[in-house]
């Protein structure tokens, strides 16, 4: 079911350590009840692609919040704030998890919520989605879109990102959908295979889809990496997956 009448606004939410941050909130009009989705933006920041993706999910019936992971870094153009975040080594996994938990609580507190909340993320947000699905107790469905470094090089671990997400896989407690391009280098197909093997060994509920002719970020209409055919199919799988698990 789709909703042409949606409402979008910037709202305040309570993130990690009780800090107040900004989030983009797009939801279908009507009494609901509606499932919720937390959309984790990619490294470039809280930018137009992610905001538009939130509206797309709302159009398909999901009250969607895209919280700004960089709200503590000041105001400015999303690309400038994204550059600032990068120069500071990004946000810590603990802070990110606290913010996602806060965004989930925001969704569940709405009067027309159905109580179920999924998480989706692109690129670095895919990695953070994987972490959220493993570390947060109340995620009902998760979609990892080409998240890199789910299997991290030990040399790349640091104080902000101290543990490879794959090491938390035993704690994954919701269905996981993964979308990947076979031409991607991060994650490369071999890494995706390794992640899938671990999910399978641990008896987790997951479905992975791999696309030929696509690399990284093939949903992003603003980049040369955009692949319309694969993106259309991928979005359909996302919507179907969330409808099945959150409806």
């Amino acid at each position: 079911m789709t909703y042409r009448d949606i409402t979008c606004e910037v709202v305040q939410f309570t993130g990690h350590n009780g800090e107040q941050g900004e989030a983009y909130y797009a939801r279908p009009a009507g009494p609901g009840p509606f499932p919720g989705v937390v959309l984790i933006h990619h490294i470039p920041g809280w930018n137009e692609f992610c905001i538009e993706a939130a509206r797309k999910l709302a159009h398909h019936g999901f009250a969607t919040i895209c919280n700004n992971l960089y709200f503590r870094m000041g105001d400015g153009d999303p690309d400038d704030i994204g550059a600032r975040a990068r120069a500071e080594g990004g946000v810590s996994d603990e802070q990110m998890l606290g913010d996602v938990a806060g965004a989930m609580a925001f969704l569940r507190a709405q009067s027309n919520a159905n109580g179920k909340v999924g998480v989706i993320g692109f690129c670095s947000g895919g990695r953070q989605t994987y972490l959220s699905a493993c570390r947060l107790p109340d995620v009902n469905a998760a979609v990892d879109c080409w998240g890199g470094r789910v299997i991290a090089d030990p040399a790349a671990l640091n104080a902000k990102q101290p543990v490879s997400p794959i090491d938390y896989t035993k704690d994954l407690n919701c269905p996981l959908l993964g979308l990947f391009g076979n031409d991607d280098k991060e994650p490369a197909p071999a890494q995706v295979d390794k992640t899938e093997a671990i999910l399978k060994d641990l008896g987790k509920t997951y479905e992975f889809h791999r696309y030929d002719g696509a690399g990284h970020a093939f949903f992003d209409w603003s980049r040369p990496s955009y692949r319309p055919e694969q993106a259309v199919d991928g979005w359909k799988r996302v919507i179907d997956f969330f409808n099945h698990n959150l409806g």
């Binding site: 490294i43 895919g126 890199g148 990284h216």
Partner: peptide
């Protein structure tokens, strides 16, 4: 890529 790996000068 999707990493925060940077060089600083």
């Amino acid at each position: 890529m999707c990493s925060y790996i940077t060089e600083k000068a």
